[in-house]
Amino acid sequence: MKDYILTVMAQDRVGIVRDVTTALTSLEGNITNVSQTVMCGYFTLIVSVQMPDERTQLEIRQAVERMGSVGEFEVNVRPYRQANSSRPYKSQHYTLSMMGKDRKGIISRATAYLSDKDINIDDFYAYVLDGRFVMLVQVSVPENVDVEELQTELELLGREYDLLVHLQHENIFRATNEVRPVMDLQRKN
C-alpha cells in the first residue's frame, strides 16, 4: 500500500465528503485522516489515504473529479512523505489576537514578523466584518524567546496599523473555557 495526501476544493454543498470518500473506497483505498473547512461558502477537504500499489496519482484524481459535475472539484493528489515537523526545542502555545479597522497588508506583515522569530503558526483564523478586522492565531513560541519583548514588539506593530494586539498564553483561554481542572493545565507545562 502507498500513502497519499489529497485536497479537494469546491463550492460548498451537501454530499461532497460522501462523493470523495466513495471515489476513494471504490479504488480500494483506506482513509486514515480527514479534515474539512468551510469559509465564505467554499469547502476544502484534506484527506490522507492508503492505496493499493498499482493505483496512480492520475487515476485517484480522476476518480474523485468524476464524482462532481464538470469542473466542480479542484483536486490535488501527492504521495505522502513523512513531514519533518519535529523542532529541536521546546515551545509554549500562545494566542495572538489582532483587532481593529481593516487595512491591506496586516496579515502578511504580522506573519512575516512571526516567521522571522521562528514562531510557528499552529492555527489561524481571520475575517473582516463591516470593515472590522479580526485575527486569531495560535502560535508555538520557542522557550528561548523573550515573550515580554515579543509582546511589546507585536503591540508596536499593532499600533502602526491601529490594531489592538495581545499575545496571551493559551492557558488563560483553556482555564476559562474547558472543564478540566486548572492543575491539569499546569501539569502539562
Binding site: 494566542t95 489576537s97 492555527d123 495581545h166 493559551e170 483561554f173 476559562t176 473555557n177
Partner: peptide, 16 residues
C-alpha cells in the same frame, strides 16, 4: 485551541 467564540468571549471579558 479553545473554540474561537469562547476565545473571543474571554478576550472581551478582559478588555471591555
Amino acid at each position: 485551541m479553545a473554540a474561537f467564540e469562547d476565545t473571543f468571549q474571554t478576550i472581551d471579558m478582559l478588555q471591555n
